[in-house]
Design a protein around this nucleic acid. Sequence first.
DNA 1: AAAAAAT
Length: 732
Amino acid sequence: MFRVLSVLRSQWRCHVLSTTQEVITMPKNKKPKGGRPARNFDPSYAKSSSKKPGSRSAGHRGYRPEETDAPAKTRWSRDERVAAGRSPHRGDREGRSYDRDDRAPRTGGERGGRSFDRDDRAPRTGGERGGRSYDRDRNERAPRSFDRDDRGPRREYGDRPARPHYREDRPARSYDRDDRAPRRDRDDRPARFNDRDDRGPRRDRDDRAPRSFDRSDRAPRRDRDDRPARSYDRDDRAPRRDRDDRPARSFNRDDRAPRRDFDRPGFRDSERRPSSFYPAKSTTTHFTPADDVVLERLEAEAIQADEVDGVSFADLGLGNNVVRALKDLGAESPFPIQAATIPVVLEGRDVLGRGKTGSGKTIAFGAPTVERLMTLWAESGKAGGKRQMGRKPRALILAPTRELALQIDRTVQPIAQSVGLFTTQIYGGVPQGRQVGALQRGVDIVIGTPGRIEDLIEQGRLDLSEVVVTVLDEADHMCDLGFLEPVQRIIRRTSEGGQKLLFSATLDQGVAMLVDEFLVDPAVHEVAGEDQASSTIDHRVFVIENRDKRDIVAQLANRDGKTLVFSRTRAFAEDLTDHLEDYGIRAVALHGDLNQSRRTRNLQQLTSGRVNVLVATDVAARGIHVDDIDLVIQADAPDEYKTYLHRSGRTGRAGKQGRVVTLIPRNRQRRMTELLDRAEIDIDFVDVRLGDDLLGQLEGDRAAAEVEVTEVEAIEIAEIDADAEADEELAG
DNA sequence: AAAAAAT
């Protein structure tokens, strides 16, 4: 191959140096390889220690006697499973019974603290909800629904019942310490009885008169009517006791009494006395803009785009079946990143791959993974062919979001199928039954998100011990806080020495933790010359008044062509969606507060073109591919340059044109400049007011119009363009 | 702040 070794001085610009063996230089993790993982992070510890919850010593608060007659674990019937798994919406499940007699009998009679033992629980009865007790709060609350058709009519403010005046019948509270009744001595009190058996029998609930919600039905309130009407006249009030004794408050800063320590010049935080009253301040690192530095570049072997001219997938070492499957997927010949990584993966080496958004990374790891499994199979002498019950997965692909996992499966599944391998998706938010069923039937490639995968591992339903190829898509993101540890735990469950592939458009030293623990002499590959100058994306930044934001988004999104709007929070995504709908713009939302079916459906509505606008949180920032998104609006600017690149990368995919508009308030200009610097995007900001001709600001609207035009229209457009060009020449 | 688990 004609690869040129280069050191990346920048993410996108490659400086060609020499042709020595590539090296990866990363800080060495002190932890010895294969060493026992930290106790807190290893779920196996929890299992291995005490199996039974609760204390074994009688008299202890959590005492729980050994239960020999615990009922056998009852599996949910199919209907129950469906009812529970369909969605968190209450409407979907059977009504909860509040009838106490309806409940399953308690085992053992004595309560001994909550049981976490799965086999220990009472069987579920008809109408009862089977959730764990700590689900209470969540489930008793009316489920939050973002289903737009689902919502009740908006209540007008005037409709609200008046707020009761709670405080009125109480005597004024005194804060005077001497005023209080003397404290009864603790020893005067009879000992408190916590023994449940000692109590009188509980009155049966049914003895009680049914609760009435009829307001006229209620016993009269005691002292309401005795009270004089409340006066809101300020002069009318009794004088406040000690307020007036105080000297008037001064807001003059120099007037203040000196604060004890804190005002002293040179006072340092470390001098503060430790207080046991307040819980310790969280020591977890919070994100600050200063953290968003461009991490040290990974040295990488860069493939030149023109090197792949005339190279076919077969040339790279893929078998006929796989090549045919790729062709069916529309991949006729390899993209540069594919040409770079496929042969190396087939060699069995660990690989770090960086290819810009929309450059075909899924096939870059998916196709060789499938081929590699077949090779290893052949080498081990085990024939493939028939699906064997309980065949353990040999490849694992991890993604940060469910939608991305689904999307990867849509690409990898047909490739796998072409050689008789099976894939399955393992992700949360959906009933696990089908996923478990697939695993039981035998699966070769597992594609999913960390949470459910770990869950199934702990349940003993997923065994990764034979996984010899592990892929991390969006690998740098998988190393972010909150993702890294589950990911590490999962990889530790895979076969030791298995091949590891890490891919991302923004692959940087952030993956050092994983590389250090799991990868051996990885090959690092990227595509040369993938800088923003060569990009097909046009970037704009509009400086706006924050209060105009929603209207400006609406104005921008009010067009033909698919638009993806990013919001920082789920709530604002909903808010924006509402606002767009008010404008008559069909829009749907995508964020983590929606149930999975809604998420899938809403994304599908954009893909199919049923709606033109999707308002999403960063759940849609990475990896999601929707054809022909030609405008990305960042209603909230991102904090990280990598987020900027990934969000932008939802448009301008596979060589198509795209545009990104970022809205920022005036006071964010400096931060935005720094962010764009790191992303190596060089653009000027435009001041924009509501009502301006925004689309006029977006010159070059033609790219958007080229989607789905008939031949006749295309000719017309070409003529118009020719005219415009002629005009320009005349003008210039 | 968001994402990722709740049979």
